[in-house]
Nucleic acid binder design. Structure first.
Lengths: 355, 355
DNA sequence: ACGTTACATTTTAACGTCAAACTAATGTAT
DNA sequence: ATACATTAGTTTGACGTTAAAATGTAACGT
């Protein structure tokens, strides 16, 4: 820029004006400026310097605790991102996917957050004690949280997981089921093989969504006289079909009397169905399976999945819009509880032997 | 940062060192620095200022010609993004989704590119004459192009669309089909309703991928003695099931003698199948339908889709890695042609009446 | 006592921009 | 002739950092 200014014998401010407020520079000079810029290879104001000067980047960051690429594996998460993208795009902002787990040490994790040149964060489904959250808080940037964690004074978007879970459990209890198993995703961060989560582990949950869903199941089963202690909760660290299958396999081998499996996500539920088939069980005749999320595939799988519907795209959009509103210093609601509802499809039915 | 330095009576360089090269600052002082920083609300070096000083942002930008949110609608595109994310994450970089179409005027489109604070671009499937491309070129940043356009001296990743298209066409010709229709996505940018694209429009294609696929079909059909002029090419502006259905409906109403429809994407093909069902045609008995891309759904749809497989994730990963390599000033290949192959599934068969 | 090394910190300057306030020159109304 | 706008630019300085080179100082070996 300085070179262009010098070449034309004007101040650099004039160059800046030519790009930012064309009307303040005479047309002839403006044309000369663009021409000279072209010749000298000046591509226009540098965005970084501009951001520094203006103290804003026009970028929103998305924080996600797992490797970024995982986010593209689960339809629910993709839909969420789509929503956020819609909102930021509408506001003329770019979207930065912050690399969530460059290293595994707390410091490395936090550093990605500290280094993100963004105006604010959308935090998506992170554990209460994840260093990412603390780091984001430290940045003192506007921030919106989706799903978890729930923090004071930070706008939140999500559903009432506990009552949604209750609905699913009640549906199965009403059908007459008495022998339940649960396939859960992470209760708290850990890097180990899947396994039964005892009640102590359940109480130490740092992932609120998991905790709420389990609590919902528990409340309904207990109320129906089915002791929660007797319900095996199998925890696995991730939410994929493969994991669901693996865990359901263990669960079914261990306790063949199960007639209903509650899965904490559709991906897991779809895996459970695969495992059931491998065990020679047909769904829902021999085994009922319910999921959570209502991803598009849930409607087309065979059998179609009974699950809890929530509007992931809308959740993302809302999160994005709340962030934008904060950046514009508009007043915002603090908490947006989105509706969720049970969708009964073909994967649940009466337990075998019931009339 | 200046305040922290002043408070402790040291230079700001010492603060900088405490964060960036801890070993250069005595431990006691370093601790004091962090403590004072905490107290004063200093969250560590500002990423924007750092980027300015270091002349790099650690961000890769993805350029996409449609509204960002569309990218999340098509599985093929999501898989591509996943690949790019994997590559950038592996390199410790963040990923910026640049809002591709804030406004519709060339200037507005370009400005998003000019304003993107990134170290390089991955350009994904953009028309030859899109102002985005020109703007990106002007930035003189490292850049990798996926799918289109094909530019000299810019590394490229993609498949050989023409020969892949030939394979599909040959497959159908070999089955004995003689009455073809084509459902195409954009041949050139336009904002109008779907319609037949005559040969003049086909020749004016600014979207190379479209052009190559159509050329592949044409070559095979002509070689089989089926005049291309007689083949209706229906162009629609997007790649969704809904559009595929709409267009196929028009096509089938207009010319009920068609026995085979070539769709330029799986999304379109899936829509075509829906339309066929509505017309009382069964696939593949009455009508054969072939897609392009092999998205996951193609394998599970009913009937499963005959299509061209390509590894979208790998394409994205490669594009990302090529960009990273350029940023590190490593030597790179200029063109990476990925393999693509015909996958015959259940949506194609002999034409009705053939023995 | 003197040079050497090592360490801990400072100095300097530049990264590229733009908000705000200012100037000079010309036109325009009173 | 005076005051007042308007236009087309300029000057100034700060945004927050860090590379590179320079400085000071303590400890060490001979």
């Amino acid at each position: 820029m300085a070179r262009v200014a010098e070449e034309l014998g004007v101040s650099s401010m004039t160059i800046s004006n030519a790009y930012n407020r064309p009307e303040r520079v005479s047309e002839s000079l403006r044309e000369q400026i663009f021409e000279t810029a072209e010749r000298l290879g000046y591509a226009g104001p540098d965005p970084v310097a501009r951001s520094l000067r203006r103290q804003k980047t026009n970028l929103a960051g998305v924080l996600y605790s797992n490797p970024l690429s995982y986010a593209f594996d689960d339809a629910a998460q993709v839909l969420f991102l789509k929503g956020v993208a819609t909102a930021t795009e509408e506001a003329g902002m770019g979207l930065v996917l912050v690399p969530g787990s460059v290293g595994s040490s707390p410091n490395e994790r936090a550093s990605a957050v500290m280094d993100a040149a963004v105006d604010g964060f959308v935090v998506y489904s992170i554990a209460d004690d994840d260093p990412l959250v603390e780091a984001a808080l430290r940045r003192r940037l506007p921030m919106v949280i989706a799903d978890q964690p729930l923090l004071e004074d930070v706008p939140f978007v999500g559903i009432d997981n506990e009552s949604a879970a209750r609905e699913v459990a009640r549906h199965l209890v009403d059908l007459g089921h008495e022998h339940f198993g649960v396939v859960s995703f992470s209760i708290a961060a850990a890097d180990r093989p899947p396994g039964i989560a005892d009640s102590r582990r359940q109480r130490s949950a740092t992932l609120r969504v998991t905790r709420a869903r389990l609590a919902g199941y528990e409340a309904v089963l207990e109320a129906a006289g089915l002791p929660w202690k007797g319900v095996p909760v199998y925890e696995c660290f991730g939410s994929s079909k493969a994991l669901g299958r693996e865990v359901a396999d263990a669960l079914l081998s261990q306790d063949p009397s199960l007639t209903a499996i509650l899965a904490l996500s559709d991906q897991l539920a779809l895996g459970v169905i695969e495992a059931a088939k491998e065990h020679g069980l047909s769904v829902p005749e021999d085994l009922s399976v319910a999921g959570f999320d209502d991803v598009p595939e849930a409607a087309t799988s065979r059998p179609p999945l009974t699950t809890v519907h929530q509007d992931h795209t809308k959740k993302g959009e809302l999160a994005g819009r709340l962030l934008v509103a904060q950046l514009r210093e508009e007043e915002t609601e603090d908490t947006d509880l989105l509706p969720a509802r049970l969708v009964v499809r073909g994967s649940t039915g009466r337990p075998p032997g019931a009339s």
